[in-house]
Design a protein around this nucleic acid. Structure first.
Lengths: 152, 152
DNA sequence: ACTTAAGTGTAGCCAAGGCTACATTCCAGA
DNA sequence: TCTGGAATGTAGCCTTGGCTACACTTAAGT
């Protein structure tokens, strides 16, 4: 999935038939969708590296609930994108870029879980739903969440 | 994408290495991801039918920001799944099941936008982010949102 | 009544991300 | 040391959901 051009964001005159705006929104959602995979993997690998000292493809597969060939294929994509490195039969490691991304993703995840909890979502549901929702929260939304939690 | 078995949900003893739980969460997120497309289309078609009186594939394509062959392909899927009907060169219509789904999806969308607004997310971001997040909100979360908005 | 542009449909390509089946490598215990 | 099972890697298939290029209807304007 190649990201669509996401064309120029002309501000829409109020009250106009806002088709382009809607199309942009869907476009943004599609881009986010294609990034979710990369984000989940990087976060998980970072987690494994810090808690277990190593990240092996089977561990990644098991934690994600997919078969190991699926995991390996995606890890290959991470390598292509310069986020991870791995030598055959050795573990997986993150490049600085990968680590950077992992930390950003984790912070975002935690923020969203916190917000969900603070509006009364049960812990289990908050954790589960955040797993999907986190990939769609824009900067503006994250800022608002932080401010809300702060002012509570 | 076929939905994975989503294996048995044994409740996890607290403090244990909660791998299965995490795998289940990712599994749930994957299922949700494959449903997003269907939900978006059904909601949009319903919207076009009520506001324009008809839903044509090019309109759907334009509103979603994709080419019309892409739209047609997905609409074919809706037909396969019994959510929509269409005769060549005529418009697209929703079956009762499709309408039911459309209404549920729209209600959910609105609820999420409302919640985001109520915690201080700017309108534009709320609308855009809801487009992606809505597909991941569980029943428990939606109930919590409703309760939160109610008690405000 | 024709012609033509817009709308609609079809064919075929690509990448992502699942899967199963099979091959290879590693390492621990006999 | 050697050997067998677990871990890892590869090959090949499927579906989804994008795309472009091309074909066919429909309907509108002259």
């Amino acid at each position: 999935m190649k990201e669509p051009p996401l064309s120029d964001s002309l501000t829409q005159p109020a009250g106009m038939p806002a088709e382009p705006t809607q199309a942009q929104r869907f476009g943004r959602a599609r881009s986010a969708r294609s990034a979710t995979q990369v984000e989940d993997y990087v976060e998980l690998i970072d987690d494994l590296l810090t808690t277990q000292g190593e990240a092996r493809s089977t561990d990644v597969a098991r934690r994600l609930g997919v078969t190991h060939p699926s995991a390996i294929k995606t890890i290959a994509r991470l390598k292509r994108e310069g986020l991870a490195t791995a030598k055959p039969y050795r573990g997986i490691f993150l490049t600085p870029a990968g680590q950077e991304l992992a930390h950003r993703v984790r912070a975002r995840h935690r923020l969203i879980v916190e917000l969900l909890l603070s509006v009364g979502v049960p812990r289990e549901a908050a954790e589960a739903d955040a797993e999907g929702m986190e990939h769609y929260a824009s900067e503006a939304t994250l800022e608002a969440f932080a401010a809300f939690l702060d002012g509570k």
